[in-house]
Design a protein around this nucleic acid. Sequence first.
DNA 1: GCCGTAGTACGATCCCTGTCGAACCACCAC
DNA 2: GTGGTGGTTCGACAGGGATCGTACTACGGC
Lengths: 102, 102
Amino acid sequence: MTTLLAHPERDEIRIASVLQALADPVRLQIVRALAEHEEGISCGVLPLGVTASTLTHHLRTLREAGVVRVRPQGTSRISSLRRDDLDALFPGLLDGVLAAKR
Amino acid sequence: MTTLLAHPERDEIRIASVLQALADPVRLQIVRALAEHEEGISCGVLPLGVTASTLTHHLRTLREAGVVRVRPQGTSRISSLRRDDLDALFPGLLDGVLAAKR
DNA sequence: GCCGTAGTACGATCCCTGTCGAACCACCAC
DNA sequence: GTGGTGGTTCGACAGGGATCGTACTACGGC
């Protein structure tokens, strides 16, 4: 629908944008949740305490920063972590973030 | 002078604050510079293109997040990365950030 | 075709923060 | 003491972004 889900290529991912994307509590929660679901999930089900339109905003931020990959599936959208790309570009970063005890 | 340089203890350092602190181009530059000077440096000498008062602001942000340790020395202030603490809490995070080719 | 559900788009609001300039403080050398 | 240099504080300002509500679109089931 509408915007056809632009994702940056691996070599277009900038560390500043990634950090910016991770520097929000809600998005951190999303990333943590995605880390536990390799196959990806529909983020609408997460208990984030935020409206749908706000969630859309956060997912776009994560997607445009290159943190998350989103693929449409029926009436839903499945989001998954771009682990491979992030690990290749910034080895350890994601693990470090996820290692933090909540 | 004035505020006596409060630093969070290791167990008070929060991942959200650290990411927030790293999510600024100027502060990223500072962190990168500090990474190359284990012994610490006076940040006033860095070519950051920002006024002194802005620099003070950024250093406070980094210090209060637990990213940087600052010790007064004469008329200067020496800043250094809290590598040990960050590596202990979020192993890989700092290395991942620094691995990014500018 | 119709409806419900999942998600997006847009506009408005509000707060946070990065920035600066100006005034000030602290230390050191003389 | 005097002055200079390195930093801080304070207030002001502007831009960004997190949030929401409302209106809208798309897909799937009946």
